[in-house]
Every structure is written in C-alpha cells, then in structure tokens.
C-alpha cells in the first residue's frame, strides 16, 4: 500500500508529466495530446515507483522494460523520461521538429530510454512477449510492461500475442489497456465495440484487473497483485482521454489536436491548481 504522501508524490509526478507534454506539443502547435494525457498516472507509477531502471544506464541488462504499443503516446513517455533524467528537459521542445530525437511515435533508435519502436498498432504486444521471453531465457527476473490503447485492441495481433503469452506462461509480462473509450473516428462502441473485455482477456488465459486508471494508488496495488500471479496480466485502466485539460477531456476531436499558446496557458493553469492542492495535502501529511 502507498502511504498518503507517497501517493501525493506520484500524483505530482503525473501533473508534471502533463505540463511537460502540453509544453512540448505546444512548441510545434499540434500533436497526440488526448491519448498522452490519459496515461500520465500510469507512467508516473511505473517510472517513479515500480520499474527497476537507471536513467544513467538506460540499457542496463536486467532493467524492467516498457513497451508503449500505442506508440502515438510518445510525447507523454518522452516527458516522463526527461523528468526522470534520461535527457535534458529542454529537448522536449524539439518534439517532431526535423532532425529531433523525439519523433511522434516511439523509436528506440532515436530516443534514449525507449525500449521498443512502435507506431503500427498491435505490434508492441508481440514485441513485449518477445522481450519477456528473451529475458526469461537469460534467467533474469525483470518485468516487461506494455501499454495498449483500447482502440488498438481491434487489431488481431493483440489477440495473437495474448494467446502466445498465456501459452508460454509469461508471468513477468504485465500489460495495460488505456480504456479511454475513444479512438480516432469516435467511441470504440460506435466504431467496433470491444464487448466484455475482461471476459475476453480471461478467456485467453490472462489474469485481469480493472481499475481507475487515474488513481495512482490503485495502479500501484494492481501491479503488485499482478506480480503475484503465475500467468500474464492485463490491467484495464478506466481513463479519460485528454484528462487534466478541460477543453480536451473526453472530446472525440482530441486525438491529434492543436495546442495553441492559449490552450497551453489554460492547461498549465489547470494543472497548477491541481499541483497547489497536492502540495497543500503534502504539507498536511508532513505536519501530521
């Protein structure tokens, strides 16, 4: 269990991820904002608390791996990596500029700290299986984490990989679904409904949990629970696409949207409010 002040630190980290993501996308004016904002809490818990990683030794052999299969959420991952010290924060403003090391979709050859190249939806799932398998072959007991979008689950490759992961008992593979209910052309229910996701994953032999994806305490606990199981895990994160910036929240148009100076200011102000409240709460914790 996380103590209150530990949870507050993670929430503050999530808010920082949102601020940096907004700023980096605003620097070029447009980007994949919705699906980046929805995963800030997950990234905070993974990179600040759960993952065995060393920003000074990003290729450490026995590190935990993170595969962002919804590769378009790169901006949120880059913000997380920069905040953790993989590279200077200033680099975030080069997002998607010609020659940048921070391209729209995650690219392991370009960005320090990115464990797998993604961008064609569905593919990260198989790569994550391969990484988990390869590490097990090396007798390592590290973990591989993977993140799928809910729209991404419409890809057949996801289900191939789930069948594979269960067959090979990849118990050090923990996958997340960013269930924000939106894809590009509408809600998943309008486009091609996912049905009973929990039952579907369970039927494939996966241990499934469904939680509030914006609650860092729940995320942390779910990961601890997943680690106790001897089969692969899926943690369904109920989230809001565009979370944390009111004009984006739950808007179908927020997938790849303009982030103007005005929107940036609005977003940063909204996050500043959240940060202020969290800091107050932190003081309360500290002063008993």
């Amino acid at each position: 269990m996380l103590k209150n002040n530990e949870k507050i630190q993670l929430d503050l980290f999530a808010a920082a991820i949102r601020c940096e993501t907004l700023k980096s996308i605003a620097a070029i004016g447009i980007g994949h904002i919705g699906g980046s904002l929805s995963i800030a809490e997950l990234l905070a818990v993974l990179y600040q608390r759960v993952m065995d990683i060393d920003p000074h030794d990003p290729k450490k052999e026995d590190r935990d791996y993170f595969v962002c299969s919804k590769g378009h959420a790169g901006p949120a991952v880059y913000s997380t990596l920069a905040l953790r010290g993989y590279f200077p924060l200033q680099e975030l403003s080069t997002l998607n500029q010609l020659g940048t090391s921070l391209p729209s979709h995650c690219d392991m050859r370009k960005t320090v700290g990115i464990d797998m190249t993604t961008g064609s939806l569905g593919q990260g799932a198989s790569a994550a299986c391969g990484i988990a398998l390869g590490n097990r072959l090396k007798w390592l007991d590290n973990y591989t984490f993977a993140l799928f979008g809910d729209g991404e689950l419409q890809e057949g490759q996801i289900w191939e990989s789930m069948m594979f992961s269960a067959h090979h008992h990849l118990n050090h593979l923990i996958c997340f679904v960013d269930k924000n209910n939106l894809q590009i052309d509408g809600t998943t229910d309008e486009i091609c409904s996912l049905g009973d996701l929990k039952a579907k994953f369970q039927a494939f032999g996966i241990f499934v949990q469904e939680i509030d994806g914006h609650d860092t305490r729940e995320i942390y606990l779910a990961i601890l629970t997943a680690k106790q199981k001897n089969c692969p895990s899926v943690i369904i994160l109920n989230t809001i696409k565009g979370r944390g910036v009111s004009i984006f929240e739950n808007k179908p148009s927020n997938h790849n949207a303009e982030v103007s100076k005005e929107i940036l200011e609005l977003g940063l102000n909204e996050q500043a409010e959240i940060i202020k409240e969290l800091e107050c709460a932190a003081n309360v914790c500290a002063n008993g």
């Binding site: 790569a127 391969g130 390869g134 594979f164």
Partner: peptide, 25 residues
C-alpha cells in the same frame, strides 16, 4: 527451450522475434 513454434500467427511471430532480438537473442 530455444524453439518457439508460435502456431499459425505470423504477425505475432515476427513481433516476438523482434522482442527476442531486443534482449540480445
């Protein structure tokens, strides 16, 4: 222990192969 007959799922197989390569295989 080093042979993986993935079943009839070519897309997944090449993705798994890529992941194995990431770990040095």
């Amino acid at each position: 222990e080093r042979t993986f007959d993935c079943g009839i799922q070519e897309a997944n197989m090449f993705g798994v192969a890529a992941g194995l390569s990431v770990t040095g295989k």
